[in-house]
């Protein structure tokens, strides 16, 4: 009986530890994406979209509309890579860069949409027109 209790307790502890390390790894990934994404944003996007994602009049849209970002999330990768309307294409950005800048944008300027990894971007890019 006593052995059984100890066994169960240990299993729970091990499970919890595993879960903790997993989530902290994703947390770490998120932070890495976010920091790199900020650099990519400043270099490629900030001139038009602004340091606070405020855009510029009706010339360049703001990136603060979290609803629209959610709705168009699968299209973001294509827009970033291929450009749209006034927005130039960014052929030099790799999938990982695009994922990172998406994480930065969708978690800044009042947005809080969590992690978005490279694999998702890869999937999104297959649908590019």
């Amino acid at each position: 009986m006593r052995n059984r209790i100890i066994y169960i307790l240990m299993t729970i502890t091990a499970g919890a530890a595993l879960f903790q390390s997993c989530s902290s790894e994703q947390q770490l990934d998120y932070q890495r994406y976010f920091v790199n994404g900020k650099g990519i944003y400043e270099k490629n996007c900030q001139n038009c979209h602004g340091a606070n994602g405020e855009g510029l009049g009706k010339l360049y849209p703001p990136l603060t509309d979290t609803l629209s970002l959610t709705k168009n999330k699968p299209a973001l990768a294509c827009i970033i890579r291929n450009g749209r309307n006034e927005m130039p294409a960014n052929p030099a950005l790799a999938e990982i860069d695009i994922a990172q800048v998406i994480v930065y944008i969708t978690n800044s300027f009042g947005n809080k949409q969590g992690f978005y990894d490279q694999e998702r971007v890869k999937g999104d890019m297959e649908g590019c027109k």
């Binding site: 001139n47 038009c48 602004g50 510029l56 360049y60 006034e86 130039p88």
Partner: peptide, 15 residues
Amino acid sequence: TACNTICPVMHRNMM
């Protein structure tokens, strides 16, 4: 108008 380097920044400030 097609400039996407310093012009948007200048005109954001000019606003």
